[in-house]
Design a protein around this nucleic acid. Structure first.
Length: 526
RNA sequence: GGGGCUGUCGGCUAGUUUGGUCUAGGCUUGUAGACUUGGGCUCUAUAGACCCCGGUUCAAAUCCGGGCAGCCCCA
């Protein structure tokens, strides 16, 4: 009772001292809120929360998350760092799968599936490999109610479990080359800084694994995989990449050397788009993968492994997306064309609907993926926004005006431009437009990459780049890992790649000034 | 690896500073209907939330501790 009284006392004091000022505050905030509400409800651009509410160049990180969630590509899962890939994301991944499968199957690789559980002993066999992966391995220690005698790793990559089996499969030179690939999920237990698509504890990938009789063959395979990846990134995803070799400190744990593709994101951070490793004979030694050659002698095999992941979809979103949402390259878009009928009352709605269907069918016959959005319950404006959010490359509108003039209205997503095409030329025009969009997206991304690439001559210049907008800094490097480590410590930038296209260093090492070995691409990275 | 911030209907949020008229308000979305349809139209009705566990207290969305999740910054 005493406390109640003291509360009433305090409340009375509060009322006496602060009440009116709070009322004023409240009034003021209400007014401001009302003004924003007017802007939102009357403005051309701003609208409800259905769309993306931040601008790409104002809050990139928030923009990225919103685009993914609101376009319906993915969602968060209940477990930290795990994501749900939704219909459109899987559809895109399936497109990538189809392209990769077509390419590698044409060159004699075949798909397999190995188990996701790897005995600890396997993982431990190659010391460097184990050391590299062990900090982020998830372990199964119990089955049902019974503790396991040997704990099982949930695969962080499949070299060890595959190569234990390779040792059984490979006996003779006739068994070589062995070229397999698998599509699967991978678990790497990231502790923090997880991000949709880019860094998740579980992700999907493709891992190719090959074994060869000679070093030269393995080298050719490493190069082959990387070239195909480059083709996919540039000619399908419309993402320009820099290709080359990783420095020793960045190479795959257990490899002789790693080659990689690196792309540049709009926020100035690099993203690794794929890797192709030359494993040399390290695994062949520890797993005892040997064959009897034509020379009747015993030899160890030479191996490669290479992979790309669902991460590439994250790059796609970041590079091509805009303030209205996703922008998808036509070759990867799950749906390439959406047809929206615009039915006015009293303006032959049945005819418009029929015409829309006719156009959609014709486009489908031409091999395009088409959605006919004839939902009655949404207005055309609402549909336009929705399909733009989802990044569908081309939209066709068919309304009374079009009907009368025997034309269709074609709108392209990337530059939001409308044009009017005679109805009987529609299919050809759309096909041409899709190609144009594909090329324009690449050209634009290429221009951005060039703009975010700077050749630097001094360490000061280097630091300025990294402290500013970021991007690639092309700089001379002596080859010493200490310099690399210092640079990372001081600027956050690492060597992303030492390009295949060698450039003569114009200066000494950017850090120590000693004679430079290479020109390397440095950047902060995801 | 270190530091900081946040968690309220499906989404955005008000309320938390100062525990109590909060039986948690608004907008949006969802559902039903009407009206519309060339850029997220309008109206009516209706549904829907305090992250989890514990503590303090007569009383917790509000304070404290822990957990889980998300975000940001630095290395």
């Amino acid at each position: 009772m005493g406390k109640l009284l003291s509360w009433m006392q305090r409340k009375r004091e509060a009322l006496a001292t602060g009440y009116f000022s709070r009322q004023h505050q409240h009034l003021w905030f209400s007014t401001v809120r009302f003004i924003f509400w007017r802007i939102e409800t009357t403005g051309q651009i701003a609208m409800s929360d259905v769309g993306v509410t931040v601008k790409k160049n104002e809050d990139f990180s928030e923009w990225y998350t919103q685009v993914i969630l609101k376009s319906g590509l993915a969602d968060y899962a209940p477990v930290k760092g795990c994501m749900i890939l939704r219909e459109d994301a899987i559809a895109m991944w399936e497109k990538i799968q189809a392209i990769v499968n077509r390419k590698i199957q044409a060159t004699g690789h075949r798909n397999v599936y190995f188990p996701m559980f790897i005995p600890e002993g396997f993982l431990k066999k190659e010391a460097e490999h184990f050391e590299g992966f062990t900090p982020e391995v998830a372990w199964v220690t119990q089955g049902g109610n019974t503790p396991l005698e040997e704990k099982l790793a949930v695969r962080p990559t499949s070299e060890t479990i595959m190569y234990a089996t390779f040792a059984k499969w490979i006996r003779s030179w006739r068994d070589l080359p062995l070229k397999i690939n698998q599509w699967c999920n991978i678990v790497r237990w990231e502790t923090k800084a997880t991000k949709l698509f880019l860094r998740t504890r579980e992700f999907l990938w493709q891992e190719g694994h090959t074994a060869h009789a000679t070093k030269e063959e393995a080298e050719a395979e490493v190069k082959y995989a990387l070239q195909e990846y480059q083709d996919i990134m540039e000619n399908y995803l419309a993402i320009p990449v820099v290709v080359g070799v990783k420095s020793d400190s960045e190479k795959f744990a257990g490899a002789d050397y790693t080659t990689a593709l690196e792309a540049m994101m709009p926020d100035g951070k690099a993203l690794q788009m794929g890797t192709s490793h030359n494993l040399g004979q390290h695994f062949a030694h520890v797993f005892d993968i040997k064959y009897i050659g034509e020379d009747e002698k015993e030899h160890k095999v030479w191996q490669t492994s290479w992979g790309i992941t669902t991460r590439t979809i994250g790059a796609l979103i970041m590079i091509h997306g805009d303030d209205k949402g996703l922008v998808l390259p036509p070759k990867i878009a799950p749906t390439q064309v959406v047809v929206v009928p615009i039915p006015y009352k009293g303006a032959e709605p049945a005819e418009i609907a029929a015409k829309a269907k006719e156009i959609a069918d014709k486009l489908r016959e031409a091999g395009l993926s088409v959605i006919l959005d004839d939902r009655q319950e949404y207005t055309p404006g609402w549909k336009f926004n929705q399909w733009e959010l989802k990044g569908i490359p081309v939209r066709i509108e068919i309304g009374p005006r079009d009907l009368k003039q025997q034309q269709v209205t074609i709108a392209r997503r990337d530059i939001k431009q409308k044009s009017f095409i005679k109805e009987n030329e529609a299919v050809a025009a759309v096909e041409k437009l899709l190609e144009e969009i594909q090329n324009d997206l690449y050209a634009k991304a290429k221009a951005n990459l060039e703009q975010l690439t700077a050749a630097v001559k001094t360490y000061n210049e280097f630091k300025q780049v990294m402290a500013g907008k970021g991007g690639f800094a092309k700089a001379a490097w002596c080859g010493n890992a200490d310099c690399e480590a210092k640079i990372k410590e001081e600027t956050g930038a690492t060597i992303r790649v030492i390009p295949f296209k060698k450039e003569e260093p114009q200066t000494g090492c950017i850090y120590c000034g000693q004679k430079a070995k290479d020109v390397a691409y440095f950047a902060r990275s995801y």
